[in-house]
């Protein structure tokens, strides 16, 4: 893995490399360089499998983190590539031409986070939510409590005698 990371460092502007004995190595990369690097890893370095494409919402930094974890089944190694994109008008290049089923991940991310993947097949189709016209629900600024209060009739009797709050004050008054 060290050899590969050194090789990548020479060719691509990767930074923030985190190696681990218990999990995959993670590297960060500029969004514009993702497609060349991931194509090179797939064709030249045996990273044939896309394990997961996931999103983390770093709302405090105004960024979305897209994590591409790819796997080399022959050497049994994983590599995680982190991409940071702005939360406003978030958009990212699609990788469905490299892995057909990446379109499913991208379709879900578009629905749940509102990140667009132009050109990805079916990216605008509904995946889990039917007729959803609110903010994408997995964004951290989506207020679940307000949504449920607006959508469903509030049940009476929930404001008093909250045992969790009572116990918290009793056991951890300083928190």
């Amino acid at each position: 893995m060290n050899e590969l990371i050194n090789h990548l460092k020479e060719r691509f502007p990767i930074y923030d490399v985190v190696e681990s004995t218990t999990g995959p190595t993670f590297v960060s990369l500029d969004a514009a360089k993702l497609i060349p690097m991931i194509t090179s890893l797939k064709t030249n370095h045996g990273f044939k499998i896309l394990v997961i494409l996931s999103t983390v919402d770093w709302i405090e930094d105004g960024k979305f983190q897209l994590t591409y974890i790819i796997n080399n089944p022959d050497e049994k190694t994983d590599l995680g590539i982190r991409i940071f994109i702005d939360r406003e008008n978030a958009s990212m290049e699609s990788i469905h031409k490299l892995w057909v089923f990446a379109a499913t991940f991208q379709r879900e991310i578009k629905e749940m986070y509102g990140i667009d993947f132009p050109g990805s097949p079916g990216v605008d189709d509904q995946f889990l939510l039917e007729g959803w016209d609110e903010m994408p629900p997995m964004r951290r600024d989506f207020d679940t409590k307000k949504y449920s209060e607006d959508t469903f009739f509030p049940r009476p009797g929930r404001e008093t005698n909250d045992p969790a709050e009572y116990m918290k004050q009793k056991l951890y008054p300083d928190e």
Binding site: S20, G23, P24, F26, V51, I52, I69, G80, E175
Partner: peptide, 12 residues
């Protein structure tokens, strides 16, 4: 209930 897990990421 009060376990602060250090910043990091992994796959299992």
């Amino acid at each position: 209930l009060h376990w602060k897990i250090p910043k990091g990421e992994t796959i299992i």
